[in-house]
């Protein structure tokens, strides 16, 4: 049952002059990436815009370094690095599709560039790069405390380490892997697939599992902080799989019903199993996503209405959720304990 509570006033509201495609929060900064190429940096306490920078050709992703001293931006025609000190920007107009940037730590970031993933230092200098994948790289994820990089593309997820361009481990599955999720425990590699499935490998022995039967392609996957729960789109309902013990083989997921089309997923920081999801109708829903039994159909613990589709969600703190909407509105919601 949904609990209707008088909606608390948001902590702040801001507006950017574009359709956001991604947001990322670290420390005191919220980075909002606009589809047409501008990144706005907002103060996390007030929502005031402190800086704006541009990547020609548009944006697909943005990632702040853990210390919020640097930022990487990725777009259809290249990527860019920005240093907070002095506001230096290094723009790389490579002409190569870049859909993802992920920091390993304060010094190293992986950026997609066409069929390759590049590992760069904070200024954008190439440190090492795996060999090209079979197609344009769709997603990357760091493993083993930033020593191993998982790279998703058509036909396989490949894991790379610095010493060799060839993969140190290859997880094959014929299909177009759209999104990667690796839990903090490193026990699993999960990919959301164009063929409307989730493909799962146990990293220890490479054993595989496919969760098929989704009505649509699975393009959003996220593990919670404990690495026990995986949330996925691929249907009007969000599915939440239990990866505890031997994993989800033979189990049924919890299904979270609130949206027609899921457009964003973000786990609340911490072990509570609280999830935020966004829909194309503008609704932000909050869930006790791990409550009930397997196969339970859950209703949101709380919802926030929005006028335009949710474009991205990110938690700034356990009680502050930032939602970017397609109309350019960025709202910081105060979220009490659910």
């Amino acid at each position: 049952m949904s609990v209707t509570t008088p909606s608390a006033a948001p902590a702040w509201e801001a507006a950017v002059d574009d359709a956001p495609v991604a947001i990322h929060v670290r420390r005191d900064l919220v980075a909002v990436a606009g589809a047409e190429g501008t990144v706005w940096l907002l103060d996390v306490a007030s929502g005031a815009v402190t800086e704006a920078l541009t990547l020609p050709g548009g944006l697909l992703d943005v990632a702040l370094a853990p210390d919020a001293r640097h930022l990487a931006a990725a777009g259809p025609l290249g990527h860019a690095l920005w240093a907070r000190d002095g506001g230096r920007a290094s723009v790389f107009e490579t002409g190569s599709w870049s859909s993802k940037a992920a920091w390993a730590n304060m010094e190293r970031v992986a950026v997609v560039s066409g069929r390759r993933a590049l590992v760069l230092d904070a200024e954008g200098r190439e440190l090492w790069a795996p060999e090209p994948a079979a197609s344009t790289v769709t997603d990357v994820a760091w493993m083993r405390a930033g020593r191993r990089l998982a790279v998703a593309a058509y036909g396989a997820v490949r894991c790379h380490e610095r010493h060799t361009p060839a993969p140190v481990a290859t997880y094959r599955y014929v299909g177009s892997h759209l999104a990667l999720a690796v839990p903090a425990t490193g026990r699993w590699i999960c990919s959301g697939n164009q063929d409307a499935s989730i493909h799962i490998w146990r990293t220890r022995d490479g054993s595989e599992l496919t969760m098929s039967g989704y009505p649509e392609k699975v393009s959003r996957l996220a593990f919670d902080d404990t690495g026990t729960w995986l949330a996925a789109d691929g249907a009007p309902d969000v599915t939440v799989w239990d990866f505890s013990g031997k994993g989800p083989a033979g189990t049924a997921p919890r299904t979270l019903t609130a949206h027609e089309t899921v457009t964003a997923l973000a786990w609340r920081p911490g072990p509570a199993g609280h999830l935020a999801s966004g829909g194309d109708d503008g609704t932000v829903a909050l869930w006790r996503a791990t409550s009930g039994r397997p196969q339970a159909r859950l209703r949101p613990a709380r919802t926030f209405a929005g006028a335009a589709a949710v474009a991205a969600l990110a938690w700034a703190a356990p009680h502050l959720l930032i939602a970017a909407h397609r109309d350019g509105r960025v709202v910081a919601h105060r979220v009490p304990d659910l």
Partner: peptide
């Protein structure tokens, strides 16, 4: 299917214009 078209059309649809 054409993976290049899926990602490019997907990005076009996320633009405001």
């Amino acid at each position: 299917v054409r993976g290049d078209l899926i990602r490019i059309l997907g990005a076009l649809m996320r633009r405001r214009e």
